[in-house]
Design a protein around this nucleic acid. Sequence first.
RNA 1: GCGCCUGUAGCUCAGUUGGAUAGAGCAACGGCCUUCUAAGCCGUAGGUCAGAGGUUCGAACCCUCUCAGGCGUGCCA
Length: 554
Amino acid sequence: MKEQLRACILKGIEGCFADGTLSSGVVPAIAIEKPAHAEHGDFASNVAMQMAKQERKAPRAIAEIIVNKLSGSSELIGKLEVAGPGFINFFIKDSAWRKTLALIAEQGSEFGKSTVGAGKKVQVEFVSANPTGPLHIGHGRGAATGDAVASLLKAAGFDVQKEYYINDAGNQMNTLGLSGLLRYRELLGEKIEFPENCYQGDYIKDIARDAIAKVGDRYLNAPQEEGVAYFAKLGGDQILHGIDLDLRDFGVVLDHWFSEQSLFDDGKVPSAIKEMQDKGLIYEQDGALWFRTTDYGDDKDRVVVRSNGVTTYFASDIAYHRDKFERGFDWVIDVWGADHHGYVPRLKGVVQGLGRKADDLGIILVQLVSLLRDGVPVAMSTRSGEFVTLKEVVDEVGRDAARFFFLMRRSDSQLDFDLELAKRQSADNPVYYVQYAHARIRSIFETARERGLAPDFSALKLELLESAEDLALIKKLSLYPEILEGAAVNFEPHRITYYLQELAGEFHSFYNKSRVIIPEEPQLSQARLFLLDGVATVLKNALTVLGISAPERM
RNA sequence: GCGCCUGUAGCUCAGUUGGAUAGAGCAACGGCCUUCUAAGCCGUAGGUCAGAGGUUCGAACCCUCUCAGGCGUGCCA
């Protein structure tokens, strides 16, 4: 709708140049916005104000000229006004709005999707939690965000792959192995002082028990290194498997799992370091190798290989991101916890060092989640192992509510997640509010059928949809495509949750004011059924893109 | 110290990338079910957009400074 209008205005201005009513010949970028107040029309543009300088005329005068040119020139525009300091207000004809409904019916689940992505290859990497413990609620927000962004980008026409990076190569794996080994020895009767820096959670004991079942006491008296290696492998595999299951229960299915260790096995870490050395981006000092991240705006250079010869996590990251681009991705997106924000400059530096643009790497920072129960904070401490896991949350509130709540806020603002609110089945709870709208519509169709009013959209009289409520709903529906696209390219799934609440609200208002099944007015009934079918389609499309179900009945 | 993020109604948050009289939900108060799902709707009230300057026709949004909170600042991951 906006685009059509934009083309219209452009044609009008060019027309003015052609007949001499305007003279500068310079057309500014035409901004079209949706005014905050209905009396300012469906859309408004400030082109006249933008042209004022070049034209050497008062904005309102320019606006008048354009309005004269435009009036009657399009079947889109019903009424035009010059207002305020020089705005042009556009009132779109109702008939033009109603065309959205036909479009929705025609496109169905495709409605809202676009092709801006043009098939560009994008990778979204998210969660990527260390395989040293189960996913907690913070990972849940990252998972919901990454998954939603991936599916938004897909809807915007990108070719998207979802990847999980497994940090299976650092110190933490030794710690995991040691934790397992100690619990194992403890279970076999040894008295153990369990170190504070080991993983405290009970899942470690489960791993130890599993080991006893598998290998008995084989590692009781074996050299410690062997035991640590064994438990690192066993624990890592089991925990990773559990993570995959938890994610699947949450509705998240990764396309690819990438092992950090494989970078070493395939020699990709040294070759990446060599490339950077050859480019002069890595230098030696104090026996260590440093990457010149300060060339790219970082506070200080960063160590890649320590003086003891061991590579850092950063070295793996260089190799990993180099590998991503070598796999042919045009655009690489990382979803991180906001506590990693300090890594942004150095990784942007790496990407540029690889000969890419800084923007070829997109980074989404996901802020902390505070868990509440009826407004009271739930105590959480990762150190003691008393964290709340994603699985516990999903089991308690359900997948749909959990996903919706995680996506309700901008990812870089902190999130309060109230378990009791998420479970509540009332208007307080936005998930149910939205889903209820969908179920309600389906229920109306059910009732219509029972009463012998079979939907028949072959001879529609859409002009009967003329009430304020009818049109408000239609206008809200026609907004969906641009909302979807904006949410995708800005990595902002919360725009969809807000839109859903607005659309559901518009529907509930409609419902309380308008009747759909009216025996004495079959044509209006059919038109309204057609309208509601469109509402249900858009509700479902938007819920689906967030990975949330649209129930038929509640 | 330096860097990043945040500061909008009592609470939780939006604000279409600089537009017209700053919005929604919750909480509060008052109404609406013999009618297609009350898991719903309507109304009332609520604001120094942290503060101070600046940029311009126009600022919650851009620039500078100040204040408050969070995070980061390792040859850990």
